[in-house]
């Protein structure tokens, strides 16, 4: 009797194995590592001013009741160029965007902003990627929606495109 049952065991195991393979094929590994900080308060950080005409960034800047976008970018990052026009348009619609430039330098940033435009109200230089790691960000560009109490409510990974704007605006609207 038990021998009969045992015969089914390999089939069951193979079935489980194939189910896993099938699921794995259905959702291929997206290789995107989302931040674990979404829903939590923005951690303590400070990034010194990158440009003479804009202040730097600290976590204290985010607790004044106004929701903001926190954009992690870099002047050496090629895709970042593509999202600047979108960010500029959002800025015109009254969105305050704070930039944190990773592994960057003031001269390189100056060139980048002169060429592409400057959508940022504040730009901080993130030396040694400390702020980036505090946010749980794994690359550039990434954009965080931070509410008025300084809580991260959303993480957008990759370039912000026109299609993403309504969603981001909606989140900013709700995130008082």
């Amino acid at each position: 009797m038990s021998r009969k049952l045992l015969l089914w065991l390999p089939f069951a195991l193979v079935f489980v194995l194939f189910a896993v393979f099938w699921l794995g094929l259905k959702n291929p590994d997206d290789r995107i590592i989302a931040s674990n900080m979404v829903g939590k308060p923005l951690p303590e950080f400070s990034a010194r001013a990158a440009m003479p005409d804009r202040p730097g960034v600290t976590s204290a800047d985010f607790t004044d009741g106004k929701p903001r976008l926190l954009n992690v970018f870099a002047s050496w990052c090629v895709p970042c160029v593509r999202e600047v026009p979108v960010l500029l348009r959002m800025q015109q619609q009254g969105v305050e965007i704070v930039g944190v430039a990773v592994h960057d330098s003031s001269p390189a940033l100056a060139t980048f902003l002169a060429q592409n435009g400057n959508p940022y109200d504040r730009i901080g230089l993130d030396e040694g990627g400390r702020a980036q790691i505090e946010f749980g960000s794994s690359g550039v560009p990434e954009t965080f929606v931070v509410d008025g109490k300084g809580r991260i409510v959303h993480q957008h990974i990759g370039v912000v495109t026109e299609q993403d704007v309504p969603q981001l605006l909606g989140m900013l609207g709700k995130a008082q």
């Binding site: 393979f21 794995g24 094929l25 291929p28 590994d29 290789r31």
Partner: peptide, 29 residues
Amino acid sequence: SGILTSVHSFAVDPERGVFILALLAIYIG
């Protein structure tokens, strides 16, 4: 099939994965 991330991963293609999976199912089953 490239369904796993690896330091050695070279060729990846989920489409072909389905084909090999079907072969595996036939032979092992």
